[in-house]
Write a protein that binds this DNA or RNA. Structure first.
Lengths: 230, 230
DNA sequence: ATAATAGTGTCTGTGAGACATTATGTA
DNA sequence: TACATAATGTCTCACAGACACTATTAT
């Protein structure tokens, strides 16, 4: 049997929604060579010793161990592999997209959130091919935001239409008609994916907002039968 | 540095369209242990020695070396990994979906096509978790057939509407209104993804068929802004 | 003429897009 | 009162779904 000389890892693109339509990316300061001390994506090596039941479990473990974070949504995006992406040799990495709760907090100096655009537009360089991985994961998010309710996982379970609008616009990178979103949320209500709490949120100014509650089916995403933004 | 004890491979779910709305799966007789002599998915080990430029290249190499086949469409579906899926130890496998030309032929006794339903419905068992991988790849194909032109890659570049209808119905597993498909093809024509050859195909009976030509942009798929079959 | 298959036309329903209008709160 | 923000209503348009109807070949 071949004893393969290959590195396998799982890397996580974890995103959090902040104030006005911005997405932030979770970074960790590397504790080991190569690229020690540099800010990079959280991840773990997959070497069969950790008794991970599956790759998905390894991804969840990475987020938990490195950042003490449990994401409402975790989804595999793709696997890349090449001889050049890691100085140690031929390596492959499976990328996961994690959507975090906006209230997610971090502990310690080795963890931080950075504005996603800083990475996407190259102002914050990342080691390995991590910048490309981030772009690929964000592309997946954008694509799914067109025809699914995925962006709702960036919100707290109880949310307002305005917050949902911010989430969709952050994922899509452009404005969305609020009437369109209201229609979609209405359809999700009929299917039981959203319930009206009956309560109101009272902002410092303006009319109170209806408080909705997201009731996602675990591991599934609501799919619309049309696209926004054609 | 850790010398990981892990097996990495690439496995291909290669599909061909035959006569009346049926899909066939490419299988290969295994030349090595484990499961030697059994029919299984074509694949290769990824061990860094083969100088594959990337995982995608490894997938293309697997199809070429094992079956002498070059697919019009090759797409990564997912990566699975666990301790139990291979008797040799913790292993991971990246699944690719390949869509072949209907004229694809095979050489040798170690290659064959089998009706996809035989595998999906469990009448043809496969080693490892290959049956689950096939189901996952077919699910991807079905999902994409709802809102993209992916099934066209199962046809020869020059095709008729009837053939396209068969491709979509095979991927979706149910009937499609031909008027709907005609509308979609019309929109692809306007965008330059399909051209009207002006020529006709003359079947033994009935009105001659318009011959269309598929002009896909390499590596991309035409996306419609609505779903079929809601 | 008849059978067989290809292609068009018509009508309905749904939901996005755009924008005006109304509703409900605070200062 | 004015202002700010939420929510609803109206109208158009594109396209899927269903099905009737017409077109073009062979026998």
């Amino acid at each position: 049997m071949n004893n393969a000389q290959i590195l396998a890892s799982v890397d996580i693109v974890a995103l959090r929604l902040t104030a006005p339509q911005r997405l932030e990316l979770l970074l960790i300061r590397r504790a080991r060579e190569p690229f020690i001390e540099q800010w990079a994506l959280p991840g773990v090596l997959v070497n069969g010793r950790c008794a991970d039941a599956s790759l998905d479990a390894a991804a969840a473990r990475a987020l938990d161990e490195k950042a003490r974070v449990a994401p409402p949504h975790l989804e595999q995006v793709a696997t890349v592999g090449s001889a050049s992406r890691d100085p140690r040799g031929w390596s492959m990495s499976t990328i996961y997209l994690a959507l975090l709760c906006p209230t997610t907090g971090l502990e310690g100096d080795d963890l931080r959130f950075i504005d996603l655009d800083e990475v996407l537009e190259g102002r914050q360089p990342l080691p390995f091919d991590h910048a490309a991985l981030v772009a690929q994961a964000y592309a997946r998010l954008t694509a799914k935001a067109v025809y699914t309710a995925l962006p709702l996982h960036l919100l707290q379970p109880r949310f307002t239409v305005t917050e949902a609008l911010a989430a969709f616009e952050a994922c899509l990178g452009q404005a969305v008609q609020h009437t369109t979103l209201r229609g979609r949320l209405e359809r999700m209500k009929e299917k039981g994916w959203i319930v009206d709490t009956g309560e109101k949120n009272r902002p410092p100014m303006g009319r109170p907002q209806t408080l909705l509650e997201h009731r996602p089916e675990p591991g599934r995403v609501f799919v619309f039968d049309r696209s926004v933004l054609v």
